[in-house]
Design a protein around this nucleic acid. Structure first.
Length: 723
DNA sequence: GAGCACTGC
């Protein structure tokens, strides 16, 4: 077996120790790595091993800390070994900047101009050509590419980099690539190879997923980092967000007591300012929310202050809502933070939490995105790739079935799939758009009515970052708010969607858009990307309209209602009706009480409203809806039944049909056992509670006998059958 | 009367 080959270490039986010299992030390393000439990189000694391992195995895992050179050198080695004769060597990155800057560096090293031998492709920027042998791209780009070329016929090697980040797209690509090899598709090239590169991960599981493929480890150097638990936060403070004070305290202490060296501080939000006393010498203190957020120069960082928390966007399938939650970071993330102190010299990492917090509250690894985000778009993509059985898709880690069923339900409600879970013609069109299904559905309705010009700017504005500037200073904030109100009243004063359109159009047609933005406290950079997104969406619609069977419908209602009618087609899943006072109730079956966010033009206007639709929900201190618009009941009346008239079983029936009888039996038994386990757990919990109650002791024996009797009649019988 | 991370097509 290839896994037993000498130079290549199998991952079998290998633990994934948490130690600081193995935790890295590549993005920051990029500028720094430049200083090392590529001849000195540790990966060079493994060159032959790596090439051989790729030749011998369909899948290979390469691990190594940042700075080992795997991102830049491995594709080059494979090119030099002749792999690109059979197709492009594709390297994916989770982020655009990384894809572009790595491509630049490799092109430099190989002495060619970017876009020829070495190129990159990201959204809005394709810098590659027919001659491109090594192509860096975002993982999203590769996923898009697979919708046109599912067998990846153009590629000889696919390298998935930064696999440890476990982005939603990387996880989907894992499954798609695995499937490609399982099915032995006739069009798949014999020589397609897959390399997964990761800094830190549960490598045993990953290797097992890819058929126990070999793992090559590239060692690297790091200076020693002292780890100090400051004991300012313990397990009890898990829900408490007052850790900011602790972070400031530790930072000040470092500044006053420690030797020269810059400080890197990790917090969950941008702080307006962390005050440091006038410096005796000058010391730089960088406050960062997340490592990937900004490319920081980390030269000279000797001290890291780890606040211990991150902000995470989680999707709650029960409520159908996204929630921004502050959660403890994982041990592996903490080690990555630690590593940041030892890049250029030895350093110290101050953790504001104690050892108990580390042991009890921090998971080993972060929960991957696929298990905590809405899967609607991803499931639609899979359906378009003819993967109907989305429940049994080979996930590295299977998301909760509830999450998948919720996505199916949503897709059905948007007409993207039919009752039996098959993708519809409309669904295929929807997958063309890089937008949420709700928004896409609204755009397509507009296109059917021939009024897409109304919707495209709104869609573009909703898919870029928040355009409204909120200055920190109180007076300026007032001014900004007034300007924003001015804009919303120009849009009629009662429709946040229309406000976005007004901003888009006014800025675009102004003589100096940047000045216009300054005046109205709007982020010019966001608008620039909105302009580009609008162009891209317009192009997609143009192509769809060229199809001969593109539906064209007549709109016969009043003109001033057409925008909101289109929005209703997409957002009827997000309808709410006013209940008591300023509270609204969603109509999606959950009946969740919601409130209009103070940033909306409809805030404080609630008494005048009856029915509304909203773009998104944010749960902070209350459940808030943002980007709201009032509607009439008649517009959604016919659509609302669709919110309830579906059968989750039927929607996922594709999965069931393909499952053998035997599998169903096994699955049912598992469920039985699980239920029994749950029941037993609940009972023992109750028991523990009762034990604390003195009065109950006398009854304990009687209950015990009663339960024993029940068990001997009921549960044991079931167990015997399943055995 | 809120605020409050990041990425991607």
């Amino acid at each position: 077996m290839a896994a037993d080959r000498e130079p290549v270490r199998s991952s079998q039986g290998r633990s994934a120790p948490i130690s600081c010299h193995r935790r890295q992030r590549d993005k920051i390393q990029i500028p720094e790595e430049k200083k090392i000439t590529y001849c000195d990189l540790p990966i060079k000694q493994q060159r032959r091993k790596l090439i051989q391992a790729v030749k011998d195995n369909p899948f290979l895992i390469v691990t190594g800390r940042t700075g080992s050179g795997k991102t830049t050198q491995l594709p080059k080695y494979l090119y030099e070994a002749g792999f690109s004769k059979h197709g492009t060597i594709g390297v994916t990155q989770p982020r655009k900047v990384a894809a572009i800057s790595v491509a630049q560096r490799v092109a430099e090293e190989m002495n060619c101009s970017l876009g020829n031998l070495v190129g990159y492709q990201v959204r809005f920027d394709d810098c590659s050509s027919q001659d491109t042998a090594i192509k860096y791209m975002t993982d999203g780009c590769l996923l898009r590419h697979m919708m046109v070329d599912p067998d990846l016929t153009k590629f000889s090697v696919i390298i998935l980099d930064e696999a440890h980040e476990r982005t939603l797209t990387t996880d989907i690509l894992f499954g798609l690539l695995k499937k490609l090899f399982q099915e032995k598709s006739p069009t798949r090239k014999e020589h397609l190879k897959v390399v997964v590169m990761s800094a830190t991960m549960e490598l045993v599981g990953l290797s097992a997923f890819f058929g126990n493929c070999p793992v090559v480890d590239i060692p690297g150097k790091i200076f020693p980092v002292k780890e100090i638990f400051c004991d300012l936060i313990g397990p009890k403070d898990k829900e408490n967000s007052s850790y900011v004070n602790a972070v400031v305290k530790v930072t000040l202490e470092i500044h006053l007591n420690e030797l020269a060296g810059d400080i890197l501080v990790f917090l969950t939000e941008q702080q307006r300012r962390i005050f440091l006393p006038p410096p005796p010498g000058i010391r730089k203190c960088v406050v960062s929310t997340n490592i990937s957020a900004t490319s920081l120069t980390i030269d000279g960082i000797r001290y890291v202050v780890d606040g211990g928390f991150v902000k995470q966007l989680n999707h709650n399938p029960r409520l159908g809502l996204d929630m921004l939650e502050v959660v403890p970071i994982s041990k592996s993330e903490a080690m990555q933070r630690t590593g940041r102190a030892g890049r250029t010299s030895s350093g110290t990492c101050f953790r504001i939490y104690n050892q108990d917090f580390w042991n009890q509250c921090m998971p080993d690894y972060m929960i991957p995105e696929i298990k905590r985000t809405s899967l609607t778009s991803v499931i639609l993509t899979l359906k378009c790739l003819a993967i109907h059985d989305v429940i049994r898709f080979p996930y590295l880690e299977r998301p909760d079935e509830k999450l998948i069923l919720e996505a199916l339900k949503h897709l059905y409600q948007c007409d993207a799939i039919n009752r039996s879970g098959h993708v519809t013609k409309l669904g295929l069109s929807m997958a063309e758009f890089p937008l949420s299904p709700n928004l896409t559905r609204a755009i397509l309705k507009a296109a059917f009515w021939g009024c897409e010009d109304l919707l495209l700017p709104i869609a573009a504005m909703l898919s870029v970052e928040n355009v409204f500037i909120r200055p920190g200073e109180a007076e300026k904030q007032k001014e900004a708010e007034l300007r924003h109100q001015e804009l919303s009243s120009q849009a009629g004063g009662f429709n946040d969607f229309a406000t976005l359109a007004v901003i888009f159009e006014q800025c675009k047609s102004s003589t100096s858009p940047p000045t216009w933005c300054q005046r109205y406290w709007i982020h010019w950079r966001c608008l620039q990307s909105a302009f580009r997104v609008e162009g891209q969406l317009r192009e997609i619609i143009r192509k769809l309209k060229q199809q001969p069977d593109f539906p064209r419908e007549n709109y016969d209602g009043p003109k001033h209602e057409i925008l909101r009618r289109c929005l209703c087609t997409g957002y009827f899943t997000n309808v709410a009706r006013r209940s008591v006072g300023r509270t609204f109730c969603t109509m999606d079956g959950h009946g969740t009480p919601i409130h209009i966010h103070p940033s909306s033009a409809l805030y404080n206007q609630e008494s005048k409203l009856e029915w509304i639709i909203f773009h998104d929900v944010l749960v902070t201190s209350k459940m808030y809806v943002k980007t709201v618009c009032p509607i009439r009941y008649e517009w959604v009346k016919d659509l609302l039944p669709k919110l309830y008239q579906f059968d989750a079983y039927e929607l996922s029936s594709m999965a069931r049909h393909e499952v053998t009888e035997e599998e169903i039996k096994r699955w049912e038994n598992k469920e039985d056992l699980k239920q029994q386990k749950d029941k037993a757990m609940k009972e023992s919990l109750k028991k523990m509670q009762r034990r604390n109650d003195d009065k109950s002791i006398l009854d304990a024996r009687a209950r015990f006998l009663e339960r024993k009797h029940q068990r001997s009649q009921g549960i044991t019988g079931t167990l015997k059958e399943t055995d």
